[in-house]
Nucleic acid binder design. Structure first.
Lengths: 351, 351
DNA sequence: TTTTTTTACGCAATCGTTCCCGGCAACGAT
DNA sequence: ATCGTTGCCGGGAACGATTGCGTAAAAAAA
């Protein structure tokens, strides 16, 4: 099956003109007489002519499409970010090709090769939790590919970056717990190599330190897949519950960590927040409907997408190589709900 | 900024060969001597040559990319479907370009024109709730564009389609409520024009009729944006609550309708399921953590995506025009949880 | 040795578009 | 009458890759 399109040649033949004349008429060149232009334009409209973007790409050595790699689309933070990216891309005539690493380095690499081989004009990426080797990004960057890192950034590579103040987000959440009287606060962290994991962990530690609470390494659990696998969260929770001194609150550092942590706690019959309080990073819009309503740190995901795409456009459309890069830091928002209320109205089962 | 790629010419020049020889060597043609092949292959590997897909697309008149249009990615059903589509596409060397209609006809049309102008080889679409005019799809289809409809299909166009048994899904859910003793069952329906809305409504009505329950039109509320707008759900719920005889249960016919219905009920202080029970279509994996845990009708979204992509591949790769089309009907799953339990363990507030 | 076959490669067209260059009228100025 | 100018348009190369066809040299057959 094929989809036959009408070309500039068809117009030229039908009107007895050369392809160059038709091309110029369509682009409204001053070299073409008004009558010819009118003729061409009307005929083009009539037969529904659209320039072939592939031929244009070949000629102009640009595809007008950009690549986006995230760990998974079915994650509210990322789907909201993608919405932001898409909206700006769309307004600028760019195409967005989305792919997922699913937290796997090999899949990320494969996607990357695939995207570059499809000649994308630029790349927006939040690296996978497994990625430790950034040489491929470096090479790409050195060869002139415009790249914007967002969310999970790579420090070693100098380019535009978009993040939230992860340190402050985690600090605020932890402080909120402390203020509410929790003293033995654990944290569920992402893969230790991730920039966001480091920053959030630092915020958590700083809040404890600033309030004269000890930092207990046994209360810090890493989930290398960011909570994507239920198993890793289960293990982490189990280990926390086996401690002599169990935590009375948990700060979860990623969307899936937060919801899967709640899932595991409920599965074990642990009451939130009576037995253990919970606050975490999350962008799901269902958190207030959960039992208990979750206190969350929310990121401006849509806006992050918009900013990333705008920065990428700057890189792509700059005539000379860009040497001045910026890191945009947006702010998180702490939404306090039931899962962290110390003096919460208790519920009790009655027959 | 530009990203300079290495071409077949570079290899030819460096090795003192013609481009044709290099091309043939790379494609392992019998016309090329083993020594030359080895030479070319090794050099290509060394300088990291990758054929330019754009040039190939131009030559072969196919882009090896397909378009997908859904109402919004940030909807679990669609993001899961996209995962399914992507996995198959990826394995077959196809690129997926995703775009969102956000339930708007004009946006859908714009996306459609954009995608076709980007010369996609095929299209997978779930139409927007606003779409009443299918002439553009018809024209596209008649001009030879391979199309697969999924979820929200278009009856008037003969091509492959992938759906679930919406009738049975709604029937089962309604029957489940009836079995549990609910008698005054309302439904929140999607835009009335949508295929899925019609089928689900029919299932709902049939279950009532089969159990000698009257069908009361005042208990049927349409939300033209599928619950995407909180307003429309609010209005619907308000109208239901103002009835002389209020419903004792609700069947929500879409993901957002289900969760936003719960949101509105809670906002009004209505207890679920004590005052009103709720069951709805949903693919979110958080429904069991909600308060109350939601009974849902779940669709095999990932599988639907896989099937759709496989059918599209059949269309694209068929030599002759396809005239035999099929409609794959998958089955839904009813997950019974707290939101529909008549004799549910009551919870009571205590000081 | 001559003819035929095989091997191994180059030339050039093609896909759809843009754009440099060159050309030919018609015009006014000298 | 000649020259330069301007307006308008066509020829053809180029982007990167594939491929039918032609052909030189080497090998095989006569």
């Amino acid at each position: 099956m094929k989809f036959e399109a009408v070309t500039i040649k068809d117009i030229a033949k039908a009107l007895g003109l050369s392809t160059s004349t038709v091309s110029r008429a369509l682009r409204d060149s001053y070299e073409i007489s008004p009558e010819t232009k009118k003729l061409v334009l009307e005929y083009a409209e009539k037969i529904n002519y659209h320039p072939n973007p592939i031929a244009l790409s070949l000629k102009e050595r640009r595809s007008r499409s950009i690549g986006v790699i995230v760990s998974e689309i079915a994650n509210s933070f990322f789907s909201q970010s993608i919405n932001g990216i898409e909206s700006i891309a769309y307004n600028n005539g760019y195409n967005v090709i989305i792919s997922q690493s699913r937290e796997s380095y090999s899949r990320e690499l494969l996607n990357l090769q695939y995207l570059t081989s499809r000649s994308i004009d630029g790349l927006i990426i939040s690296v996978s939790a497994e990625t430790k080797d950034f040489s491929y990004f470096k090479e790409l960057h050195e060869r002139g590919m415009p790249i914007v890192f967002f969310d999970r950034i790579v420090d070693e590579i100098e380019t535009h970056k978009v993040i939230v103040d992860n340190y402050k987000g985690a600090y605020d959440a932890t402080l909120h717990l402390i203020t509410n009287g929790y003293k033995h606060i654990a944290t569920l962290s992402n893969a230790a190599v991730l920039s966001i994991a480091k920053e959030r962990l630092a915020g958590y530690k700083a809040a404890l330190a600033d309030n004269e609470l000890a930092i207990d390494e046994s209360l810090i659990k890493y989930c290398s897949h960011g909570g994507m696998l239920l198993d890793e969260v289960e293990t982490a929770i189990n280990e926390l519950l086996e401690l002599k001194k169990k935590p009375d609150a948990i700060v979860a550092a990623a969307d899936k960590l937060t919801t899967n942590c709640l899932r595991m706690l409920k599965a074990r019959g642990i009451k939130v927040p009576e037995d253990i309080a919970l606050v975490g990073f999350s962008n799901t819009d269902l958190t207030e409907l959960l039992d208990p309503p979750l206190s969350v740190i929310r990121q401006p995901a849509f806006e992050m997408g918009e900013v990333s795409m705008n920065l990428l456009l700057q890189l792509i459309e700059s005539k000379r190589p860009v040497t001045e890069f910026e890191t945009r830091v947006l702010t998180t928002e702490l939404l306090v709900r039931g899962s962290t209320k110390k003096g919460r109205t208790k519920t009790k089962e009655i027959a």
